[in-house]
Computed example of a mutant assay.
Amino acid sequence: MTSVLNGGLLILALLSAGVVYGTDVFFAVVGRAALRGVSDAALTETMGRLHQVGDARMPIFGATALISALALVFTARPGSAASLFALLALAGLGTQLAAYLRVAQPINRQQTAAAQRGVTPPNARELQQRWDSVLPLRALGMTAAVLGLICCALSLR
């Protein structure tokens, strides 16, 4: 029964973390560079609308990944490799979440509000640069999370 439970938790954690991982890596590798070439107005409108939708829909994936990884820590044999890899995943998820909550989310709110009002803030480029500044940390945290979950899966075989 425990192996079925762990398998289900791993699937949930990997799929949900994969959504966040893919999003963060995409913006770190592609989005950041592409947005440097648009006007401040286009930047505000695009990112504001993306954050409006993303901040409403993405938390379910992050929460599912966190809860599943935490559950794996407790359902895997204490002190086992699987449990330690689940802890690594949890640390990566926590790193990403902390960077999001401390830096990205407040900027998301500002960009969303500006896009909804149809205005371009005078500091639009600076806001985006600050948001971009935590992308490497977020992507690295999610890389650690996904790697930890993969290693957890392999150690449970």
Rank of each mutant, 00 (worst) to 15 (best):
M1F: 10
T2I: 11
T2P: 01
V4R: 13
G7I: 07
G7A: 01
L9E: 08
L10I: 03
L12Y: 00
L12D: 05
A13K: 04
A13L: 03
L14E: 12
L14P: 00
L14C: 07
S16D: 12
G18C: 10
G18N: 12
V19R: 02
V20I: 13
V20L: 08
Y21C: 07
G22V: 01
D24C: 07
D24P: 00
D24L: 12
F26R: 06
A28R: 10
G31I: 06
R36Q: 12
G37V: 03
G37I: 04
V38P: 01
V38N: 00
V38K: 00
S39G: 03
A41D: 14
A41R: 11
A41P: 05
A41N: 06
A42T: 13
A42D: 13
T44R: 02
E45K: 12
T46D: 08
M47N: 12
R49V: 12
H51I: 04
Q52H: 11
Q52Y: 08
V53C: 03
G54H: 00
G54V: 03
R57K: 06
R57W: 05
R57Y: 06
M58F: 14
P59D: 04
I60Y: 09
T64C: 02
L66P: 01
I67L: 15
I67Q: 09
S68I: 08
S68A: 15
L70Y: 10
A71K: 07
V73Q: 07
A76V: 06
A76N: 15
R77I: 08
P78D: 07
P78L: 07
G79E: 04
S80T: 05
A81Y: 01
A81N: 03
A82R: 05
S83G: 09
L84N: 08
F85Q: 02
A86Q: 09
L87F: 02
L87S: 07
A89F: 03
A89I: 05
L90F: 14
L93Q: 01
L93R: 04
G94S: 11
G94L: 05
L97K: 11
A98G: 03
R102V: 10
A104W: 09
P106R: 02
P106N: 02
R109A: 15
R109D: 14
Q110F: 00
Q110D: 14
Q111P: 00
T112D: 13
A114D: 03
A115T: 09
Q116G: 09
T120K: 00
T120G: 02
P122H: 10
P122M: 00
N123Y: 11
A124R: 05
A124N: 06
R125K: 09
R125W: 08
E126W: 04
E126G: 05
L127S: 11
L127T: 12
L127F: 11
Q128Y: 14
R130Q: 15
R130S: 13
W131K: 09
W131C: 12
W131Q: 13
D132Y: 08
D132E: 15
D132Q: 11
S133N: 08
S133E: 12
S133A: 14
L137I: 14
R138T: 10
R138L: 07
G141P: 13
T143V: 07
A145T: 14
A145Y: 10
V146N: 10
L147A: 15
G148V: 10
L149N: 09
C151L: 15
C151Q: 11
C151N: 07
C152G: 04
C152I: 06
A153G: 15
L154H: 02
L154E: 15
L154T: 13
L156I: 10
L156R: 05
R157S: 07
R157C: 03
